[in-house]
């Protein structure tokens, strides 16, 4: 086996290459990052909602970060239905208590987890939501039951500021 000697020139090649790569990467980053959400978009990242006008069995849709968010005041029947389901029947098992801070209020991003259409409310085989694009059925807790969607409707981060107001984001 012939031993390769590390020459001064090898060292210079490698260090020059390394510095060039680091320089190129640090120059490239601003050009990539400029496409990320900017400060004016991030400033709109939370939305407050007044719950008082909503009666049981009624939903509203609000815009949060440019996406629709369903806020539904569920009826007792819907809550019972959501809580009674055996987790083994669910493709994406999740208990209703994990999906609603207060069982009466269901807050979720109104975008089908399949390919991004907006599901229609109180439709479908499970009396929840039904996506018209490719036929995904969601139940009264917004969990996927049938169809091509892989996961349950997303629950955004939100808090109850008081009994009548929630803040999303």
């Amino acid at each position: 086996m012939s031993e390769k000697k590390v020459t001064r020139r090898n060292f210079l090649y490698v260090t020059t290459g390394a510095f060039t790569a680091a320089g190129a990467a640090s120059i490239a980053w601003p050009f990539i990052d400029q496409m990320n959400p900017d400060a004016s978009v991030k400033a709109l990242a939370s939305t407050e909602i007044d719950l008082r006008p909503i009666v049981p069995g009624q939903s509203i849709t609000v815009l949060w970060r440019g996406k629709p968010v369903f806020v539904r005041r569920r009826t007792q029947e819907e809550i019972d239905e959501a809580q009674m389901v055996a987790l083994t029947d669910l493709p994406d098992p999740q208990d209703d208590s994990e999906r609603a801070i207060n069982p009466e209020w269901l807050v979720m991003v109104g975008i089908c987890t399949h390919l991004g259409c907006i599901p229609l409310g109180q439709k479908g085989d499970y009396n929840g939501w039904f996506c018209p694009c490719h036929g995904s059925h969601y139940d009264t807790s917004g969990r996927i039951r049938k169809g091509p969607a892989p996961t349950n409707l997303e629950i955004p981060e939100y808090v109850f500021l008081n009994d009548n107001t929630i803040k999303i984001g």
Binding site: W29, P30, F31, Q34, N36, D38, A39, S40
Partner: peptide, 13 residues
């Protein structure tokens, strides 16, 4: 001004 203040690295570009 939006580029200068809001866009990520907009000032630099």
């Amino acid at each position: 001004e939006h580029i200068m203040r809001d866009v990520n690295y907009g000032w630099l570009l």
